[in-house]
Each structure stands twice: as structure tokens, then as C-alpha cells.
Simulated scan of single mutants.
Amino acid sequence: MTVSRDPAPRTGPEQMPEGAAPGPVGDPAEVLAELGRSWKWILGSAVATLVPGILVLVWPEETLHVLAVLIGLYLLVIGAFRFVATFGRDDHGERLPGLLLAVLYVLAGVLCLRNPLQTIAALSLIVGIVWLVSGILTLYTAIAAKDLPHRGFVIGAAVIGIVAGIVVLALPTESARALTRLLGLWLVLIGLAEVALAFAWRAALRRSGIAGPQGPDGTA
């Protein structure tokens, strides 16, 4: 789940307090931080989850090889989204769960692509563990962050991820077709939850803009 903590945009002349000096132009960390706080970035993560989910549901006859490649690419792309999203958090101590999650997604994606002819059980295990750990870390972030807007949306998305991981790990899948339907269904549900979170985040950003520009210390 791509979650940023501060809903207030930090860069641009209209957001800087009078007399403040602009930060270094082109600073990669600042660019990533601004990108990670954008609601469009969360929406992009949602689309990256929805697309493979829809694909595997529309084409349930795909082979296990194709399914493993689709899931592997999905995990790699979402890992990149998670990595950038960690820079949107002001507290460096809160970035650790996000970085761990990004690494987990990338490693899982590499495992799926490295051996796409693996068994159904192995693919289920990889995806189930990723969703379970992702949901737990997202739930921890939602509870620990003191000023997280729309906390309920984040918690709801985290719970969906946890349930998805448990279901995939607990229910045996006897065929590639059954696994395809199961993973596709959960990908669509998780993607829809992230879409709702993205638009909720956009609403928070708009309200923050109406309240007036903020300085680096959070004061108007």
C-alpha cells in the first residue's frame, strides 16, 4: 500500500513561506519525496495492481508460466512504487517499514520471473507471504502515524491485504485455473481499495491547500 504521511505539498513557490530559500534544484531525494506524496502516485500503484488482476480474470486459460510472469512483473512494479512512496514520509524512522516492503516485493518478483515454471504451490506461497506481510506493515503504519489523513481507508486496504494473504496461503489450489481466478480476484479487490485511497488522499490535499500554504515546520 502506497501511503504518505503529510498531505500538504511542500514544494513550489506558492507553498514556500515568504523569505524562505528554495532547496537545491534537482535534489533526487526531494523529487522522490514530492512524487511519493502525490495522490496520482497512489493512483498509479492502484492501476498497476488492477491491470494484471483484470488480465488474469479475463484470460483464465493462461498457463502457469504466463501467470508467473504477470505476477512477477506486478511485484517488481509495485516494489518500485513502494520504494518511492517511502520518501514521502517526513519521519525517517517511519521509512523503514516501507523500504522493507519494497525490498520484499522486488525479491518476490525476481523469484517469480527467475523460475516461471515453478509449481502452483510455490507461486501461491510467494504471493500469499507478500500480501500478508504487506498488509501487516501497512496496518502498522496506519496505526503508528499520528497525523495520517483518512486512516480508515488505509486500515481497510491493509485488512484486505492481510485477508488476501491468509486466503491464498490457507486454501489449496489444485489447478492453474483456480489459482488464476483466486489471484485475479484479490488483485482487483486490492486495486480498487487503492483507487479509493488515492481519491481520499486527493481530497486531503485539496483541503490542505484551502487551509493555506504551510512552511517546513507545518505552520501556516
Rank of each mutant, 00 (worst) to 15 (best):
Met1Thr: 14
Val3Leu: 06
Met16Cys: 05
Ala20Val: 15
Pro22Ile: 14
Asp27Ile: 14
Ala33Pro: 04
Ala33His: 12
Glu34Tyr: 10
Glu34Cys: 05
Gly36Phe: 08
Ile42Gln: 03
Ile42Thr: 09
Leu43Val: 04
Gly44Pro: 11
Ser45Ile: 08
Ser45Arg: 11
Ala46Arg: 02
Val47Asp: 11
Ala48Gly: 11
Ala48Tyr: 07
Thr49Ala: 04
Leu50Asp: 05
Leu50Glu: 00
Pro52Thr: 12
Gly53Lys: 02
Ile54Met: 01
Leu55Asn: 09
Leu55Cys: 11
Glu61Thr: 14
Thr63Met: 00
Leu64Asn: 12
His65Glu: 09
Ala68Asn: 06
Leu70Ile: 14
Gly72Thr: 09
Gly72Tyr: 09
Gly72Lys: 07
Leu76Asn: 06
Val77Arg: 04
Arg82Met: 09
Phe83Met: 10
Phe83Asn: 07
Arg89Ala: 11
Asp90Ser: 14
Asp91Leu: 03
Glu94Val: 15
Arg95Asn: 03
Pro97Thr: 01
Gly98Val: 10
Leu99Cys: 15
Leu99Asn: 14
Leu101Val: 10
Ala102Gly: 07
Leu107Ile: 03
Gly109Asn: 07
Val110Met: 10
Arg114Ser: 15
Ala121Phe: 06
Leu123Phe: 03
Ser124Phe: 07
Leu125Met: 15
Ile126Leu: 02
Gly128Ser: 11
Val130Tyr: 07
Leu132Met: 02
Ser134Ala: 14
Ser134Pro: 10
Ile136Thr: 00
Leu137Glu: 09
Leu139Gly: 00
Thr141Pro: 13
Ala144His: 13
Ala145Cys: 08
Ala145Pro: 10
Asp147Thr: 14
Phe153Cys: 04
Val159Met: 03
Ile162Pro: 00
Ile162Gly: 06
Val163Asp: 00
Ala164Ser: 03
Ala164Thr: 00
Val168Asp: 11
Leu169Asp: 06
Glu174Cys: 10
Ala176Ile: 00
Ala178Cys: 05
Leu179Asp: 10
Gly184Val: 10
Leu185Thr: 13
Leu187Tyr: 13
Ile190Thr: 03
Leu192Glu: 12
Leu192Pro: 12
Ala196Phe: 11
Ala196Gly: 13
Ala196Cys: 13
Leu197Asn: 03
Ala198Cys: 02
Trp201Gly: 01
Trp201Arg: 10
Arg202Ala: 14
Ala211Asp: 12
Gly212Met: 05
Gly218Asn: 09
Gly218Ala: 06
Thr219Phe: 14
